[in-house]
Amino acid sequence: MASSSQPTAPAGLDLIDQPYSVTPEQLKQFREDGFIKLKDVFDQAVLNHYGDVITRLTLDHNPNKDTPLEKRSTYGKAFIQVGHLWHKDADAKAFTFSQRIARIAAELLGTRGVRLYHDQSLYKEPGGGFTPWHVDQQYWPMASARSVTAWIPLQPVPTEMGPLCFGKGSHLKNIGRDLAISDESEQRIRDAIRQEGLIEVYEPYDLGEVSFHYGWTLHRAGPNTTEQPRKVHTVIYMDQDMLLAEPKNDNQRGNWQALTSDVKVGEVMAGKNHPVIWSLDDA
């Protein structure tokens, strides 16, 4: 059920708040593989409307707009990254607060509800470079592994455009957890994946297909060799009862101060930036 702060979707776009059926087989697959791709989560009307909003915000707040692609670091070449879109626009908030996506996240995690950790757009420009192997939760001071990222393409993503590639079952391996995303993480994690014999799953995304992956699931993305941007909105969820852990590195300390400074170590991460998006408590 929606929280009291849940925005209302415009007329004709209420699919974002309608339930989506996740089967027991899909739950099992997610927990074994560390990721899952779900078909037909959104339709063309939803993606057109919210895609236009996310694109406008991404271009307006593009941190790379004054730096040519060829002069950026590997990270800067990988994508345009703009966070906290829900603070910037009412429609962006409605999309980030989608009950459909949040309920899927809670079901996949097996929790009574989920909080927002943060949202962000990840636009891989035409000619944009690869995204190195990494794990997301290396950046987040969370006390458990009950976090999940929803990766929501705003258009179909063929392999030439740089969809996500996952290390199947890698959330169960202690690989790359001390590495920030970088050229080093790309090489060291790639080598470890091959040594462990993990399967790399690199597949295109259909229109309306959305993937979910654990915070400790290894993933990367190829370059965008097309003439169109790869437009993606992401929402990171955590267990409604997630506790703030003592930060283990500079990235986690930075995230604590930037997002969760109103919460103390050992407390539930119920700060102003982390509202409950969906919960059985509200049913």
Rank of each mutant, 00 (worst) to 15 (best):
K248M: 14
E184A: 15
Q26I: 03
L15C: 05
D281W: 05
R112M: 03
D178G: 14
M161R: 11
Q99S: 14
L172T: 11
D183W: 02
G129F: 01
Y202Q: 06
D60L: 14
Y237L: 04
N48R: 14
L27K: 07
Q228Y: 08
L15E: 10
F166M: 13
L243D: 03
M161G: 06
A143Q: 04
Q26M: 09
P10V: 09
P163S: 05
E196G: 02
E196V: 01
F212K: 00
L27M: 10
P163G: 03
K168G: 05
E125C: 05
M161T: 09
N249I: 12
D14F: 05
D250Y: 08
W216V: 03
I80P: 05
K231G: 03
H171C: 04
G162C: 05
L154V: 07
K173Q: 13
M269K: 02
A245H: 05
A150L: 01
L27N: 02
S182G: 08
Q18R: 13
R103S: 12
D60A: 15
N48P: 00
G113T: 02
A78F: 08
A90N: 12
G110C: 02
Q29G: 06
D14W: 01
P24D: 05
E246D: 13
M1C: 04
P24G: 02
A78L: 01
K264M: 06
M269R: 00
A150M: 07
K124M: 05
F130N: 10
T55N: 14
N273G: 00
D60R: 12
N249L: 13
Q26G: 03
V235I: 11
H233L: 15
M142A: 14
D241T: 11
L207W: 05
N249W: 12
V235E: 07
Q44P: 10
T67D: 07
F95H: 01
D52M: 11
V135M: 02
G271R: 08
F79Q: 14
V53E: 01
M238V: 12
E70M: 04
P19I: 06
H134L: 04
P141I: 06
G76E: 11
L218V: 04
G162H: 04
G113R: 00
P68R: 07
Y202N: 09
L85Q: 11
Y123P: 08
G215R: 06
H118A: 00
Q18T: 14
E32S: 07
Q257T: 12
S3D: 13
L154W: 04
D14R: 10
V135N: 02
I104H: 03
L179N: 11
V263H: 02
T58W: 08
R56N: 09
R103A: 09
Y50V: 12
Q120D: 09
S170A: 08
G127Y: 01
N251M: 14
E70L: 06
P141Q: 04
K39V: 00
Q99A: 13
V53T: 14
Q252M: 15
F42Q: 02
Q252W: 10
Q81I: 01
F30Y: 15
E107T: 04
Q6W: 13
L38I: 01
V53F: 08
R253A: 15
H87D: 12
R188S: 15
L244A: 09
D281N: 15
T55W: 14
R220Y: 09
Y202L: 10
H61R: 07
V263C: 08
W140N: 00
D119C: 13
G51K: 11
Y202V: 00
S185W: 09
K77R: 15
V41N: 05
W256E: 03
P163F: 06
S147M: 09
L198M: 06
